[in-house]
Amino acid sequence: MMGTVFDIASWVLLTFGGLSVLIGGIGALRMPDLFTRMHAASVTDSLGAILVLTGVMLQAGLTLATIKLAAILLFLLLTSPTASNALATAAMLAGNKPGIDTTSNRSDAQ
């Protein structure tokens, strides 16, 4: 009984995790400039990782694998903002200024 509940919960988590990973990928391809692409990538990096790894964790149950998965998740969540920040800073230093009033702003230009 408890096993089925965990199974269903992990399926739901995995499905939504796969979806959010996919949405982030589509966004990274569709968005018009670097900084907006980073927003899309952050969907896969935070929500996608949380959902997929938690879903797998529920499948693993209380084993060593769950602890390892939790360590991987914690590591990803701590490092991905750091990497994004380094990337954004480097891009800004190289003269890649984020536009407030660029072509990406169609809804504002009207």
Binding site: G24, G25, A28, L34, R37, M38, A41, T44, D45, A83, L87, A90, A91, A94, N96
Partner: peptide, 11 residues
């Protein structure tokens, strides 16, 4: 730009 590529590779 090269930063787009780095972002993609990180992803």
């Amino acid at each position: 730009t090269v930063y787009d590529r780095v972002l993609a590779v990180n992803m």
